[in-house]
Structure formats: structure tokens, C-alpha cells
Design a protein around this nucleic acid. Structure first.
Length: 493
RNA sequence: CGGGGUAUAGCGCAGUCCGGUUAGCGCACCUGCUUUGGGAGCAGGGGGCCGUAGGUUCGAAUCCUACUACCCCGACCA
């Protein structure tokens, strides 16, 4: 176990904070509620961005950039949208500072008040749809398939690094379509893209579903989501994809002439994932020795640590280590050679272990003599000495093994912590004493959903995609009224 | 926004009740020697407007007042 590091059992939330800080991913900043993402944390984000961006491009999307500031009047055009975000908006009211004549330092110049206040975007639907109005005239202009990588601000009272901060980084896709069916398919398609990313790259299994009316995005007709289970038994929403209907098209008057020469409103979607995924990544796989990263997202997949006693040994060992690195890099592996002479090997072992590097190779004088290398895997914390011949294939295989091992472990955990509840007592017992996902019958009303939340703190995470279509009908565990099917509850982040 | 707490070196803390030498400890940092296959040892060294502003006093980290910031627990959220 790592030094000065709390275990998950002792204090899960302290454990999480310690990983973020001690693995050098992020820290709190001088600005309330905002974090500094440090190079190692940002490198993970860049890995995520690269993978997602490719998936977006492969599904026909292109990137663009829209303004950080949104005129207040735009914001109020879609009633539900304002209602959802009004409480957490940062507002720009002035555009100039000046020196205080009374010696009070720099003050806001009261003469520089903006005619119209600007909202710092909490999401960009409004500014984007105001722009799309100008871009769309004909069905020939559709579909518009655009994504933007950006920062957004939601003024949160209580924050946690990566999981909830006032400013965060994300991507938001905003698409416009000629038909309802096409927009609905787009929203579903992007949900699948997210699920595929989280499962394949983050090695984290997800449940796909639909949000209840209560949890739906402000301004959406329908919100699809993926939910993942963390090691403490709490669910985390890993991504959302919204079918926006014609709500924003109507609010911003975005119309097109159809093939039949009829003027129609366009159909919309939006979808996003954020740096919160880094929080999910940490909580899904890490252990009491620190961060554990899936090979596909690890900034370094392999770290090589040279071991030597004197300068002469250092020379030959480091030289061999460099050759080893070059060989692995040639095979497309991300490798760090930690040849710092200022730290001892033991220190480096501990450091890279804490930072979650999937594979460690240690190379010393004995290895040079015997043509061997010590190979250690982060996910199982096991190590062995192997022949260095064909090391590149062994590493490639092991990276794949680790990736699937992490997924399988997370899947097993998820399945073992998914329960069916058939009575209210059973439901309460599972939520209070076990945690995890609870599949239960529900009468379909917001009222019941809220009461369940009030009494147990569990929220309705999702309705399965085939909700209402399957044969199993039952009675709501809370009210006993008829249910169209089981839905998933959990305590959530 | 409610309830509770904290503020002293880069980080973590002691000292504060009961005012009195030059404000201390651990980690980290710097220098040297010995070390190096799982977080090295010894010796020496540097670093402080004790959160801010006022007050009481011969004298304040310590007592009083106000302010500010941060943390934890609740309601909201990706």
C-alpha cells in the first residue's frame, strides 16, 4: 500500500481526493470552485479527446467554435432551458476597470456597464441555434453535424475535483436535421458512441437508458444517458445525448424549405461528455496503491526504470534502456524512460505505481548479463523476470490483457452490485446497506420518483431503452400501482 | 443559502486556555559524503508580516472586535 494514503474502506472520498492530488492530476485553484488541471491530468484528457474526436469525425461530425459569452436575451428564449440553468449562471455586467480615485485600488468602472449583460455559457444551445438560423435555408443545408470542444461554467456551491467544478472542459455536439426520425437516430447513435468509448477505452461498463422527465435536460424532449457504477456503489452519469425536438428551432426561428417546398422547423440534438469522465476513470479502477489507468488512455503505457550502482553501470544500463524504449516506441507503445539520476529506483517504482502506469520494466546489470528484464503489471501488482527477446510482443499482449482485465473486473463488480427489488422494504434495505443499481418497478410518475428520492436519497438513474416494450409488468414498489417495467435506481454522484 | 470548523515555512501540524528570550516539529528543499533490484542514511544549511484591519497592554501568534478566505455536513447539479 502507498505511503500516507488512505484506503477506500477507511474513507472513500478522502481516497479519491488523495489520488487526484498525489497522482499529480489536478489541484484546487485560487479561484473558488475552479481547478487547475495539471499536466498529467490534462494528458489523460488529451487521450480521451483524441479518441472521442476520432469517433465524432468517423460519424460525420466536424468541429467549430462558438463564443464563451451569450447575450442574456438569447438565454431566455427557451423557457425550460432558462429555468434549468438560471440558478447557476455567471454574468458579465461591465467591460472596464479603473483606478479608484479614493485610493481603493482597482475597481469596476461604473460607467462601463454593458447595455445587455452577457452570460458565461453553461452550455451553448442558445448561441448555436441563434447562429444556425443563418446557416439553414433549405433541406440541402441539412443535416448540420457540429461539435465543439470548450469550457463551460456552472456556478456550483460545493465542488470536487473533476466530478463537479464551477468551470469544466467538455465537448458539446449540436446537430440539426430535416426530420424527427433522423434527429432521434442521431441522439441514439451518439449515445452508442459514448457507450463504446467508455467501455472500450475507459474499460468501464455502462447501462444505457433514458432519463425520466425529472432528470431530463432543460429544453430537451428526451435525454438518453449512460450510467456507470463506481466502487463505492454510487452511480455516475458518464454521458448524455438529447433529442431536442423542435424546441430550439422554434425558440430561435430556424426554418428550412423542404423538398416539398414547405417551410418547416428543423429537428435538433445535443450531446456531451466532460472532464468528469476523469473522475469516473479514477473511481472505477484505482486501488489502495493509487491510480490505475487502462492502457488505452494512459499517457505512458510503459515506464522503464534503469537500475545501477555506479556511473559505469549507469552508462551501460541507460544505453540499453534507451534501446528498449526505441524498440517499444517503434511498435506504437507510449513509453517513458525514467532516467532521472536524482531519484532512487524504489522511489520511482512507488511514484509510477501511484500514477497508474500499466506496465513497469526494470532493467539492471543482472538483466544485461542474463538478457532479461523485470516486468510488473499495475492492475494485479504482480511482477516477473522474463527474457528480453520478443519483449515488444509480450508488452503489446500484456497491454491488451490489462485493458480487458480492468473491464472484466469492473463488469463483475457492476453485475454483483446490481439487484432486483420487489418490495419497498427490500428496496430500502439494498439502497441503505448495499448500494449499487437497484432494478425495480415504478408507476411512471414524477411524484413517486421524488418521494423515493426523498426517503432513500436514491434517484431514478434511467429507464431501460426498451422500457414499456417488454412483457414483464408489475406493481410499483412504492405505491403498488401498475408498472410498465423495471427501471434503475441508485444513489448517484 | 443553513449548521459546524480552521487560518502559524511549499505541505501537514504543535504552541493560543494561563500574553514575556531569537516561534518550534515532521515531510519537502539546498550542500557534502556514503548509498542505489520497492519510497536511503548521516552531517550541515536555507526558508515565517503567525489570514487581514483595528483595539487592549510596558510587551500580542496568544486577549477583544470586525472582516476575509478555505474545509466539512445538508438543499442543487454533468
Amino acid at each position: 500500500m502507498a505511503k500516507n494514503f488512505v484506503t477506500r474502506d477507511e474513507d472513500y472520498s478522502q481516497w479519491y481526493n488523495d489520488i487526484v492530488i498525489k497522482a499529480d492530476m489536478a489541484e484546487t485553484s485560487a479561484v473558488r470552485g475552479c481547478m487547475v488541471i495539471k499536466p498529467y491530468g490534462y494528458a489523460i484528457w488529451e487521450m480521451m479527446q483524441a479518441a472521442l474526436d476520432k469517433m465524432f469525425k468517423d460519424t460525420g461530425h466536424v468541429n467549430a467554435y462558438f463564443p464563451l459569452f451569450i447575450p442574456k436575451s438569447f438565454f431566455s428564449k427557451e423557457a425550460n432551458h432558462v429555468k434549468g440553468f438560471a440558478k447557476e449562471c455567471a454574468v458579465v455586467t461591465h467591460y472596464r476597470l479603473k483606478n479608484d480615485e479614493n485610493g481603493g485600488g482597482i475597481i469596476v468602472d461604473p460607467d462601463a456597464k454593458l447595455e445587455e449583460e452577457l452570460i458565461v455559457r453553461p452550455t451553448s444551445e442558445t448561441i448555436i441555434w441563434d447562429t444556425y438560423r443563418k446557416w439553414v435555408q433549405s433541406y440541402r443545408d441539412l443535416p448540420l453535424l457540429i461539435n465543439q470542444w470548450a469550457n463551460v461554467v456552472r456556478w456550483e456551491m460545493r465542488t470536487r475535483l473533476f466530478l463537479r467544478t464551477a468551470e469544466f472542459l467538455w465537448q458539446e455536439g449540436h446537430t440539426a436535421h430535416a426530420t424527427k426520425i433522423e434527429a432521434e437516430q442521431e441522439a441514439r447513435k451518439m449515445l452508442d458512441v459514448y457507450a463504446e468509448f467508455v467501455e472500450n477505452f475507459m474499460a468501464l461498463p455502462v447501462r444505457r437508458g433514458v432519463k425520466s422527465e425529472n432528470e431530463r435536460f432543460a429544453g430537451a424532449e428526451n435525454t438518453y444517458c449512460i450510467e456507470a457504477l463506481m466502487q463505492d456503489g454510487k452511480a455516475l452519469q458518464a454521458g448524455t445525448s438529447h433529442f431536442l425536438g423542435q424546441n430550439f428551432a422554434k425558440a430561435f426561428d430556424v426554418k428550412f424549405l423542404s423538398k416539398e417546398n414547405k417551410l418547416e422547423y428543423v429537428w435538433a440534438t445535443s450531446w456531451g461528455v466532460s472532464t468528469r469522465l476523469i473522475g469516473a476513470l479514477i473511481m472505477a479502477h484505482s486501488d489502495d496503491s493509487g491510480l490505475v489507468l487502462p492502457p488505452k488512455l494512459a499517457p505512458f503505457q510503459v515506464v522503464i526504470i534503469p537500475i545501477y550502482r555506479d556511473d559505469e553501470q549507469m552508462l551501460s544500463v541507460v544505453q540499453s534502456a534507451k534501446k528498449l524504449k526505441d524498440l517499444l516506441v517503434k511498435h506504437g507503445i507510449r513509453v517513458k524512460l525514467d532516467d532521472r539520476d536524482t531519484q532512487k529506483p524504489g522511489f520511482k517504482f512507488a511514484e509510477h505505481e501511484f500514477k497508474g502506469v500499466p506496465i513497469r520494466l526494470a532493467l539492471g546489470p543482472r538483466d544485461l548479463e542474463n538478457n532479461t528484464v523485470e516486468i510488473a503489471r499495475r492492475d494485479t501488482l504482480t511482477k516477473e523476470i522474463i527474457s528480453i527477446d520478443g519483449i515488444e510482443n509480450i508488452v503489446i499482449d500484456l497491454l491488451n490483457t490489462i485493458q480487458s482485465n480492468l473491464f472484466n473486473k469492473a463488469l463483475k463488480f457492476r453485475d454483483e452490485n446490481t439487484y432486483e427489488a420487489n418490495s419497498w422494504d427490500e428496496f430500502k434495505d439494498i439502497i441503505e446497506n448495499k448500494g449499487g443499481f437497484v432494478s425495480a418497478h415504478w408507476d411512471g410518475t414524477s411524484e413517486t420518483e421524488l418521494k423515493i428520492k426523498e426517503e432513500t436519497k436514491a434517484t431514478l438513474r434511467l429507464l431501460p431503452l426498451d422500457y414499456g416494450e417488454n412483457e414483464e409488468a408489475g406493481k410499483c414498489i412504492f405505491t403498488g400501482k401498475p408498472s410498465k417495467g423495471r427501471v434503475l435506481f441508485a444513489k448517484a454522484y
